[in-house]
């Protein structure tokens, strides 16, 4: 059964333990070790650190300051990362099959296949795959859903470490039911929307929040359909089109040839007389 993560941003305290745990498990460089100054830690104006997701930071806690009705500011924290779509655009567009979807949920990148075309970066509706721009032998990097931990029966590092249990690991179906139940039981605390239930045809990682998802930087313009269907419409017609063009061209060539030969024999016949 496909696994999932439910991220409850109401519970999140912004401790960034998930960011650290992820770097530890995935052996990602931290401050001062990254290959370029660009990746060094620094604060965004709202105290997000580093300012954005990059090839050396698979998950990332973003801080949002949202004004309340009474004029006070409320602080919201949201853990961002690859959402591991059920039917991922990146997997469908990869020409060499370097991105693969595992049955139990993870979308994983295979370094022995990738040749670095970056079509996945273009196709991903959530802009999640990141590229090592400063490397001569670069990798596409993103959250792996700790597939190697799942294989050993462990939960992902971020979920394991989260002190307020804001990142819950489990079966996707159960998590979805739990999300709806929690919203139903606490209508004053939660905005009634499970982000990821239908986005891009559904994702393994889902969010429930205190405010509308777009206020926390979640892309609500993402279509509800599965993305690979957009190109399948074009690809599925190709075999028929090839056959039609080949028949048309072959036929034209043959009949034009016969016709010109016929003309030629008529003219030469006239000349003979």
């Amino acid at each position: 059964m496909p696994k999932g993560l439910l991220i409850d941003t109401v519970r999140c305290t912004g401790c960034r333990g998930c960011q650290s745990a992820c770097k530890q498990w995935n052996l990602l460089p931290g401050w001062g070790e990254a290959p370029s100054d660009e990746y060094d830690t620094s604060f965004s104006p709202t105290m997000t650190n580093p300012p954005q997701l990059n090839a050396y930071t698979y998950n990332h806690v973003e801080f949002y300051e949202i004004p309340k009705d009474n004029g006070e500011i409320s602080w919201h924290f949201i853990h961002t990362r690859c959402l591991h779509c059920i039917d991922p655009a990146c997997v469908s567009v990869c020409p060499v099959g370097a991105l693969q979807k595992f049955d139990n949920g993870p979308v994983v990148w295979d370094q022995t296949r990738c040749f670095g075309c970056r079509y996945c970066q273009n196709a991903c509706p959530f802009d999640m795959p990141k590229f090592q721009w400063e490397q001569a032998w670069p990798k596409i990097q993103k959250c792996t859903f700790c597939w190697n931990r799942l294989e050993e029966g462990m939960e992902p590092a971020c979920a394991k470490t989260c002190p307020p249990n804001a990142i819950e690991f489990g079966e996707r179906d159960e998590l979805l039911a739990r999300a709806h139940e929690r919203i139903r039981n606490n209508p004053d605390k939660y905005y009634d929307y499970v982000y990821g239930e239908h986005e891009a045809g559904g994702t393994s990682i889902m969010y429930i929040n205190a405010v509308a998802p777009e206020k926390l930087g979640l892309n609500t313009d993402v279509k509800k359909e599965s993305y690979p269907d957009y190109t399948w419409e074009f690809l599925s017609k190709i075999p028929v089109e090839i056959a039609a063009i080949a028949a048309l061209l072959g036929g034209t060539w043959y009949f034009r040839k016969k016709r010109l030969e016929g003309k030629a024999s008529v003219t030469s016949g006239k000349e003979a007389k």
Binding site: V93, V96, G97
Partner: peptide, 26 residues
Amino acid sequence: TDLGRSPLIVNPIWMWQHNSIMFEVS
């Protein structure tokens, strides 16, 4: 030149992924 890992440009010859338009393009 534009590929991240230029020498692997030949990968589509033996790594088939027919759902990808980029595979067809290559």
